[in-house]
Computed example of a mutant assay.
Amino acid sequence: MSELLKTLLVDQLNVEVYQNRKVLGQVAAKSVALKMKEILKDKDRVRMIFAAAPSQNEFLEALTKEEGIDWSKVTAFHMDEYIGLQASAPQRFSHYLKERLFDIVNPGEVYLIDCENTIGDECRRYANLLTQEPIDIVCFGIGENGHIAFNDPPVADFQDPAIIKSVELDLVCQQQQVNDGCFTDIESVPTHALTLTIPTLISASYLFCMVPGTTKRDAVQKTLCGPISTKCPATILRRHENCTLYTDIDSCGAVEER
């Protein structure tokens, strides 16, 4: 495995730069696995939230191969889901996570967002599940527009009172789904989704953020170098006490410590 190329500390955010996305995913998986085991020494369960996106492919594959994790003691959630897609649609985030993680490691409890339910009822149901106990770990990425989950700049709120909400996706976010190969054209991308809010995500004790690839370079640059603002929602990560941003040469580029 290649060595760590560079580390940065931007406000409170730890940034690590690796040679490529495969190594990035492997290192992030080892870090998450270590933290899971550490938490389970003191607690009966570890409560985790996962993202579904191509940026997570290498990380999730590596995580399924990590040994010594008692997945029966894991309670798993996911952070967003399209509204309007059929339950069988391969683009559903629940399908992605089941295929790449849940059906492989079999967590003790898995709670999926059900967009077949009415929006109000589902928001109440999922919020109740999420708030029964604190969230320990969130594993996620950053969108091309700087979003975390589906908190795009027009709808992001650092003081959002909701736990989960319905949002309209902005055009940059919709185009990213096409760029990622999830949809053939922008007309096929749903216009709305349910998403966990920013306060819900950053309330977790530990955040692990995996962001490889050239398409994310502008978002990483703004996250690390721009003002902390909902214009780039990921900038809020710089205020979290235990967040690590895993990047590669393609995504981090020439970003330097300030």
Rank of each mutant, 00 (worst) to 15 (best):
M1V: 14
S2D: 12
L4Y: 07
L4I: 15
K6Q: 12
L13I: 04
L13D: 10
N14C: 06
V15P: 01
E16L: 11
Q19R: 11
R21Q: 15
K22F: 13
G25K: 03
G25C: 05
A29D: 01
V32F: 05
A33W: 07
K35T: 08
M36V: 11
L40S: 03
L40V: 05
L40N: 02
K41Y: 00
K41A: 11
K43G: 02
D44N: 10
M48G: 04
I49R: 12
I49A: 11
A51Y: 05
A52K: 10
P54M: 00
E58Y: 14
A62V: 08
L63D: 01
G68Y: 09
D70W: 02
W71I: 03
S72W: 02
K73W: 04
H78Y: 11
H78N: 10
D80A: 07
I83V: 15
G84Y: 01
A87P: 09
A89M: 09
Y96S: 03
K98C: 11
E99R: 13
F102N: 06
V105T: 08
V105G: 06
V105E: 01
V105R: 01
P107Q: 07
V110L: 07
V110R: 08
L112S: 10
E116H: 12
G120V: 14
D121K: 08
E122T: 04
N128P: 03
L130G: 03
T131A: 07
T131L: 13
D136Y: 06
C139L: 05
E144I: 15
H147I: 01
A149D: 04
A156E: 00
Q159K: 14
P161N: 09
P161T: 05
L169D: 06
L169H: 03
L169K: 02
V172P: 10
Q175M: 14
Q176C: 11
Q177M: 13
I186R: 10
T191S: 13
T191N: 03
H192T: 10
T195R: 08
T195Q: 10
L196Y: 03
L196I: 07
L201E: 06
S203R: 00
A204C: 02
L207G: 05
C209D: 06
C209F: 04
V211E: 07
V211H: 04
P212F: 03
G213Y: 12
T215G: 02
D218K: 15
V220P: 00
Q221A: 09
K222S: 06
T223A: 11
P227H: 13
I228T: 12
S229F: 10
C232E: 08
C232G: 03
A234K: 04
I236C: 12
R239I: 09
R239N: 15
T244S: 14
I249W: 01
I249E: 08
S251V: 07
V255G: 06
E256G: 07
